[in-house]
Design a protein around this nucleic acid. Structure first.
Lengths: 117, 117
DNA sequence: CAATTACTTAACACATTCGTTAAGTATATT
DNA sequence: AATATACTTAACGAATGTGTTAAGTAATTG
C-alpha cells in the first residue's frame, strides 16, 4: 500500500513533477511542456503518482478536455512523516527495553553477588 | 545527493533492513539471517544504504571480523523531513502570491468598475 | 458526423535492478 | 604459513522501468 508511494518518489522526474504541482494545479499538457521528455512519458508518471494517491486528478479547462492534477500534501506528510516517525517510536521502545533490562540486572545483583554460578 | 536516499528507501527489503536496524545495531550476518535471501543480496543492499548514508558501518565483534551497521536516524529525518517540509513552504508561498494577486485585483476594482475594457 | 483538442495506451528498445552461485578479500587463529 | 571466519565482489539471468513513436479514446466544435 505504502509501497506505491516509495516507488513513486524514487524517481527524480516524478519528484520534479510533485515539486511543480507544489506551486499549484496544472494540466497534463502544462506539466509535459515543463520537461524535455515526451507527453506520453509524463502521462505515465502521472498515472503512477495518481495510483500512489500523491496527486488527485479532475477534469478541467474551459471545456472538460483537460486533466488537472493537484498535489495531495496530506498523503505525502502522512505516509513519509508516519514512516519516519515509526523509527523514533522504535527507538524509544528500544531504550525502554534496555532500561528494564538494566533494572532487572541490578535487582539480580542485589539478590546475589554472582548470579552466573 | 538526496537521490541516493530516495532510491535506497524505494525498495521494500531495504526498508525492512532499516526497520530491523531501528531496533539496534546488527552485524551483516545477523541481518542476512533475518531474511530469506542470500547473504550477498543483503550485502549489496547494505552497500546502497551505506552510500545513501542511511546506515553507518563499523568493525565489531569479539575479533574485528564483523561489520556492524547502525541506522542513521538524523539522515532519515533530515532528508525526508526536509523534502516534505519544502512542499509546505511552497504552499505558503503560493498562498502568499495568491493573496497579493487578489489584493492588486481589488485595488484595480477600486480605480475602475470594469478593468477589462 | 467529421474534425479537433487533450490526452492515454500500446509496442518496443535499452538500461537498471534484484536475486543466485562462485570466486575473492581481509582479519584472526592454529 | 595454512585454515577458518565473516563478509564483499563478480558474473549472469529474469524481471521491471523509462523513454520513444504510433495508435487509440473521450469530449467539444463546426
Amino acid at each position: 500500500m505504502y509501497d506505491a508511494v516509495f516507488t513513486a518518489i524514487a524517481e527524480g522526474r516524478r519528484r520534479d513533477i510533485l515539486k511543480l504541482l507544489g506551486k499549484g494545479e496544472k494540466s497534463s499538457g502544462e506539466i509535459a511542456a515543463h520537461f524535455d521528455v515526451s507527453w506520453p512519458a509524463i502521462s505515465r508518471h502521472l498515472r503512477l503518482l495518481k495510483e500512489a494517491k500523491l496527486v488527485d486528478e479532475r477534469r478541467g479547462g474551459r471545456d472538460g478536455r483537460e486533466r488537472h492534477y493537484t498535489l495531495n500534501r496530506a498523503r505525502l506528510r502522512n505516509v513519509l512523516g508516519g514512516w519516519v516517525a515509526a523509527f523514533d517510536a522504535m527507538w524509544a521502545e528500544s531504550l525502554d527495553n534496555l532500561k528494564h533490562e538494566l533494572e532487572s540486572t541490578s535487582r539480580d545483583k542485589e539478590r546475589s553477588h554472582d548470579p552466573r554460578r
